[in-house]
Design a protein around this nucleic acid. Structure first.
Lengths: 323, 323
DNA sequence: TCACGGCATGTTAACGTCAACATCCTCGAC
DNA sequence: GTCGAGGATGTTGACGTTAACATGCCGTGA
């Protein structure tokens, strides 16, 4: 029995007698044999693995995107190699890419490489890459939620409730999606001729939302806050509760992401939903188009809708300013 | 210039002239060369990759454990291959193991294979395995938080606040950690001679906590609830708010996990902290002891402390039963 | 001057798989 | 009965790396 016959059986090749096939399968079972992936990768040049670089895996958006990528990859017969970088800078990301390219990957998904830019990041030539909204847009295909659109919808919703203007508790300045949300917020205000209050900048964490509440409340005209994500909104909600500020009667709050708990906060949080599952799927789709068909998609930028989900944390503005 | 010399430079072997080394490094840089991992794995038999099987990556515990595993693996020079199974049954997990063992992994981390048991799950012979508390305890080394101890501490805390007894909103029966928490809860009540109310079973989701609130409130004696995790506690909190039941004045609520948002719920949630980072580290430690030194640790079971974190969702019992 | 030790470099073979080619067998047609 | 077609199986070589061994060079000491 030659190794070639075994290989043919493993591949389901047609020209094998039924009895031979049966004997081979039987022996494979008996000996606990399974084909060696390293040898196969060496021979064929493809490993059936895609690399994923994530920043802070425990964050909701990251983990849900990674989950969707893993699932989409599985459906397409690919395994995922995961690297989590501590800091989103170029050095760390470059090191991660190094580690991954040592691992024979067929393609690379970059999830939030905040401060890394196409020029500072040394990517192996000819390695298919796809990114979640980042500075790589224009250099590599990218997928992202409609950050600006979602932000604008949130602002418009609050303006429709007769709030004079809307404050913004933003994510860190280095983050591309944070900037897009700031832009969407500002544009919506400017377009309707509203006052644009100064941006308050947090770091995505609930802690920062909690801590920055006093800064927001310093403005006596505050009646509505659009938060860069749901965690910061949670922190803000707690700070408001502690101060006896009623939500939404005194101040309306909107988040971003629609994390699973958003609906169970008190009050249930109005927020902008990011469809992480769709983002993950599109990422894999764009990546595999390059891997399999050698497609060149450098400028492709896919935008996934980010709809507003209205819950109980937003309501009509008070007649006058904040108490 | 022979390939062997290049190999020696790549490995930092001593017997290479400085000038030669420099020339090789220069050429590597110029040509963008990086050694082929597949060939190396084929030659050496080790891939420097460990497989991780997770159940629902987007859940807090899973993603934080995976993050810690990835980080610990990185420190030890290993990459992680991730597979996310849809259902925690044996079939799905077996399929995942199949996929991973096709990928040349040096070891396997199983994070929550709920209903899979050592007998139903076909693992490749001689593949080092380590699991997070599951039915694999006794067959493979395992790491887990002190579920029962944490649950008992939560119950004791409530009893100390003069609650007559403590209700339990549990995780699904198939889950090993859920059962351990039930055991810890029941033992703590029995030990102190309290009435043991019927267990209410949820599915870990906030939705289930919200939906099962009515079942809990059906008992007029309800004054304290220990929830199997923080998500279910959040759902319960919302249901209580909506019914005008005050927390903690009317009912005290305790969670489990100490997710980042627990501290920012309203009221901030008293809960049992799971140290996922430590669990991830110990997992990798136990796995690599097997991979590198061939250690046999089948019966090793590491328990990580799960301390109670007291916040504002628990308080003294009312004089009488629930309204 | 020559032999030998020791260091730098080159050569060979093997890891497991699979494409390509080679061989062998069976069966049908003349 | 012979031959050829075509299907089933075997053989060879190459993928890139590295351990083991082979070669070649230099300097030192007799």
């Amino acid at each position: 029995m030659s190794t070639q016959t075994v290989s043919r059986v493993a591949h389901g090749a047609p020209s094998v007698r039924d009895e031979t096939r049966r004997r081979v399968l039987d022996a494979m079972d008996r000996l606990g044999y399974s084909p060696n992936a390293a040898a196969r990768a060496l021979r064929s040049g493809a490993s059936g693995t895609i690399g994923v670089i994530a920043h802070q895996l425990a964050r909701t958006g990251e983990s849900r995107t990674v989950e969707a990528v893993v699932e989409a990859a599985r459906r397409e017969g690919y395994t995922v190699s995961l690297v989590d970088v501590q800091t989103p800078g170029s050095d760390d990301v470059s090191a991660a890419v190094q580690r991954l390219s040592h691992q024979t990957i067929d393609g690379l998904v970059i999830i939030r490489a905040e401060t890394a830019t196409p020029t500072t990041l040394a990517l192996p030539r000819r390695l298919p890459v796809v990114a979640v909204d980042s500075r790589f847009v224009g250099h590599h295909p990218a997928v992202g939620a409609d950050q600006a659109g979602g932000a604008a919808a949130a602002v418009q919703h609050l303006l429709d409730l007769r709030h004079a203007t809307v404050h913004h508790l933003a994510g860190p300045a280095a983050s591309v999606p944070a900037s897009s949300r700031v832009d969407g917020w500002r544009d919506a205000l400017v377009r309707t001729g509203r006052r644009v209050p100064p941006v308050v900048v947090g770091d995505w964490s609930a802690e920062s939302g909690y801590a920055l509440a006093s800064e927001l409340l310093a403005d006596p005209e505050l009646t509505a806050v659009f938060c860069g994500n749901d965690e910061m909104a949670s922190g803000l909600l707690l700070a408001l509760h502690e101060r006896g500020v009623r939500v939404p009667q005194d101040v309306s709050v909107v988040g971003f992401d629609d994390i699973p708990l958003a609906r169970f906060l008190w009050p249930p949080l109005t927020t902008v939903r990011q469809d992480f599952a769709a983002i993950g799927e599109r990422l894999v789709e764009l990546l595999l188009a390059q891997v399999r068909d050698g497609a060149v998609l450098a400028n492709r930028h896919v935008t996934v809708p980010a709809p507003l989900v209205v819950r109980a944390s937003t309501g009509p503005a008070r007649a006058s300013g904040a108490s």
